[in-house]
Design a protein around this nucleic acid. Structure first.
Lengths: 149, 149
DNA sequence: TCAAATAGGACTTTTGGCGTCCGGTTTCCA
DNA sequence: TGGAAACCGGACGCCAAAAGTCCTATTTGA
């Protein structure tokens, strides 16, 4: 299934909700986002912590704090979100510049040939933005927030 | 890391070795392939069983039996190998025509938007053959087998 | 008839994802 | 100035899926 981790999946949803909430420049706190996305609070908190560490969202501490997007959703490529949660985008660990991780490194006939495949996948994921995944055309959403939520 | 399972990884290596061994029309048995690839025999056996079930290799039973490629390596796209071991190529389970698997199906803002992403990745993987991954130009390999092994 | 080899399934072990929780720090407001 | 609200960072335990192994049945050639 080539599956993304659940946290990555949640991250897309949370980012989308954050985009919703942020139209007026407000910041959104974890409980609010958890409620809106239907996820548990500790899970949403974990997702946002990772997103903050990778610079995709910005955390504001203290009372009346919360999170806000560091960039607009249409400026966040999917590849960056995936990299934040899954590390470098590559199908196998044995390439990617790594050495010593594979016990049959010397005799492996496939060694070093995955790079074009990995690059193709990276490009595919870099060409999609979170805004495209989330069904949130920014103009309409901000014009009529009461309707979309 | 978007990681493939180890079995998928092994499958590429085993297919490459099978391509090596098969130049003279011979079949290769599990112990031989395990030795050549540096993997444990039970593991290689498991890999080949799955490959046989998906029609990528053909198993010949009985004494002097073994496995042979159902197609040439250059006719086996990477996507088919991955599908044999990982199932349909898609980054998330919630799309792909599936219903009922996601508890927040009704309110998920990302629903149904992964299809272009999945398609792009499928195309990327379908455009690479096992022969390209394995460093085995068929002509030279069969002309001088003593050198390549 | 025996040995060699695949076919198919079941079983155990192990790994890593996942969810949760806690203590610490920062900031706002009364 | 004190308390509440919120983020920050890390650690812990559970559990499902992967991974590896093994066993038995079946087939085939010498």
């Amino acid at each position: 299934m080539l599956r993304l981790s659940k946290l990555t999946d949640y991250a897309i949803v949370v980012l989308a909700r954050l985009g919703h909430a942020q139209c007026g420049g407000r910041v959104a706190a974890v409980p609010e986002l958890a409620l809106a996305s239907g996820l548990a609070e500790p899970t949403v908190a974990k997702v946002l912590k990772i997103l903050a560490q990778s610079g995709l969202v910005e955390g504001l501490r203290g009372a009346r704090g919360g999170y806000k997007l560091a960039r607009k959703l249409e400026d966040i490529p999917l590849s960056e979100v995936i990299q934040a949660f899954e590390g470098p985008i590559a199908l196998t660990a044995c390439v990617d510049g790594g050495h010593g991780g594979c016990e049959s490194e010397g005799c492996c006939p496939v060694r070093g040939r995955w790079d074009p495949v990995n690059r193709a996948i990276r490009d595919a994921l870099a060409g999609v933005t979170v805004a495209q995944l989330a069904n949130t055309p920014p103009a309409r959403q901000c014009a009529a927030p009461a309707l979309t939520f």
